[in-house]
Nucleic acid binder design. Sequence first.
DNA 1: GCAAAAGTGTTAATTATACACCCATGT
DNA 2: ACATGGGTGTATAATTAACACTTTTGC
Lengths: 235, 235
Amino acid sequence: MTSYGKQKRLLVAVDCIIFGFDGQDLKVLLIKRGFEPEKGNWSLMGGFVQPEESFEDAASRVLKQLTGLEDIYMEQLYAFSRPTRDPIERTASIAYFALLDINQYHRQQLRHEFHAEWFSLSQMPELIFDHTEMITMAKEKLRYKAAIHPILFELLPQKFTIPQLQLLYEGVYETDFDKRNFSRKILSLKLLVKQKDKEKESSKRGAFYYKLDKRRYNANFHSFLNFIAKPHNLK
Amino acid sequence: MTSYGKQKRLLVAVDCIIFGFDGQDLKVLLIKRGFEPEKGNWSLMGGFVQPEESFEDAASRVLKQLTGLEDIYMEQLYAFSRPTRDPIERTASIAYFALLDINQYHRQQLRHEFHAEWFSLSQMPELIFDHTEMITMAKEKLRYKAAIHPILFELLPQKFTIPQLQLLYEGVYETDFDKRNFSRKILSLKLLVKQKDKEKESSKRGAFYYKLDKRRYNANFHSFLNFIAKPHNLK
DNA sequence: GCAAAAGTGTTAATTATACACCCATGT
DNA sequence: ACATGGGTGTATAATTAACACTTTTGC
């Protein structure tokens, strides 16, 4: 026995929702699709799963192809499978979302072949297939997960300031936090190590840099932050 | 253009992790696999995705095939894709987990063809392929999700008592809760409607039945319960 | 010297935890 | 009358939320 015979096989692709943070807004990296159908239209970066690779491998390959980056935080989002989602031929897509330091990407970025651009979540162009739905779901999951796990650090450079971190959280949750409560909450996690130097671009006084304590970060990855806004419908 | 040509297609299956609660332990429904390879070994219920159905459709079909039940709570768990996970031929599997009232199943259960049996999570037999991993992940996700969303009601009959509900939560989290705090927390959600009749099997005094307030349940599905045990590693 | 952002402390409100007794009923 | 499980209240601790002033420094 070397196959399951008459069962129908199908194409499987991966698509990557690549998040970055520019200091102000949460952004997603999109490309201009390079082949038919929908050639030239905005799309997530994706690719077909190859015979020897897992979906995770495929997603990492696709991410590297676009950004040149490896060892990026990535997580499976959802398997999209509406039979008609691709008009040419049935293709399922396993969506992954990735969080990266947008500056890393800038440094790497020499590949114009994909015509990639960062878009704010509030200014998304029309996208092919079900990619808009994918991004909506990714954003939800990011919020959900970041409320409980300290993953947003993946969007910042190695050294960052508390005000930068707060702007990031505020961007992700589209809300404002009280800076006293915010820094107390963040620092109470004991995940951050204060540096001696300051970031002096965005203020005269300057803000101290912090770095992640990698040991504690890995150990405490399951810590809870609880940034989830409480629902007000529990009357 | 009617196909993507040279790209390799692959088999895609779905597997269902079907949870039930017998009043004491959280259980999973397993079958004896009916075809090669691994014929006769314990396995999750699964099936190949057909050309005209989404993964969700396939999972519902498979669930109905085994249990006869429809409109069951089901959620995509994860896409498993290790190229060699099935020794015969590459087959990816999209795992879904389902929560059902075990009594519904008993009532329905006339199909012996699958040799299905309920197993406690602590007494799982050896399973084919990566099915053990799937169940482990499903259990984690169930805990994770149930800490935040009131989904465990899906495992109980329409009418249930607070002590039954507490046993369920205790089973899922493998811990004990204080019954005063438990009932206060649950009732504070205002999702339950007290009935006039009592369940008299498990005690002389009898315990009042409750029903879900479906309206509030649907509206407040995103409420937070926070049964997650706090980690003690945040010193 | 003043504008702009960084940094820090206290109080009140809410929520979570710990804990013990009375109640109803079948035997 | 007693054993069994059901049901409830209160006091304390922990956490979260609200809020305002001082510091630094480049201009």
